[in-house]
Nucleic acid binder design. Structure first.
Length: 202
DNA sequence: TATGCGATATTCT
DNA sequence: GAATATCGCATAG
């Protein structure tokens, strides 16, 4: 049943060249990770933009060994560790040499739900991909995926879904201390798979 | 429901 | 030494 899901690989030319537009564009798209014998996929329901010159963004102070993937052409994966414990997945969003990206904060699991649940222990099913750290754990994304081209014929890629996307809401970003006032978080409204407090899901 | 804390890689002061 | 784009568990109300 899952194998008949209609997924169409996104071409780089389809991705907006602007970070904020890309963040909004990715809502309702699908993240796919092809493993040896299984497919993991999830519908993206929450993102945050970290545009050029954003003091809350990792690229703000220039290129380092950790954040170099943010400076790749749009559509590449930037994976990093935060708080020493959680992996976070971003999509680079500008032209080569410019550091900016879109953080993927939540997915609604589609293919491979049993596998995700298995690797997640007793976590509630509804929380599998709810939150940036949980998203990477469910999708089995870690530092090995850092720098991958999500628009190439690789194991990790972006797809368009036949499913209709609901109304898109906009809010402040979550968990920041700098540049907190800008409305750079996008999410599908009233979707319970979106992370954060309830007031930030409406 | 809300708040606090430990784990701990990388960068900055 | 301190801060950070987090999570999961503990405890309290």
């Amino acid at each position: 049943m899952n194998s008949v899901r209609q997924l169409r690989r996104l071409r780089r030319a389809e991705l907006p060249v602007d970070t904020v537009q890309l963040a909004r564009y990715l809502i309702g798209k699908v993240l796919v990770h092809d493993l040896d014998s299984h497919r993991l996929s999830g519908r993206i329901v929450e993102t945050e933009a970290y545009p050029i010159g954003d003091s809350a963004g990792h690229a703000f102070r220039g290129k380092t060994p950790r954040n170099r993937s943010l400076f790749l052409e749009r559509g590449h994966a930037y994976v990093h560790i935060t708080y020493g414990t959680s992996f976070l997945l971003n999509v680079s969003s500008e032209v080569p040499g410019v550091g900016a990206g879109v953080l993927l904060r939540a997915v609604e699991p589609l293919d491979g739900v049993e596998l995700m649940a298995g690797s997640r222990g007793a976590t509630r099913l509804a929380d599998l991909g709810r939150g940036p750290g949980r998203l990477t754990k469910a999708m089995q994304v870690d530092l090995r995926q850092d720098g991958l081209d999500l628009c190439a014929a690789g194991p990790l890629w972006l797809a368009a879904s036949a499913q209709v996307t609901g109304a898109i809401g906009k809010s402040v970003r979550v968990g920041l201390t700098r540049n907190v006032d800008r409305l750079l978080r996008f999410y599908e409204r009233d979707n319970p798979r979106v992370s954060g407090p309830k007031r930030l899901r409406k």
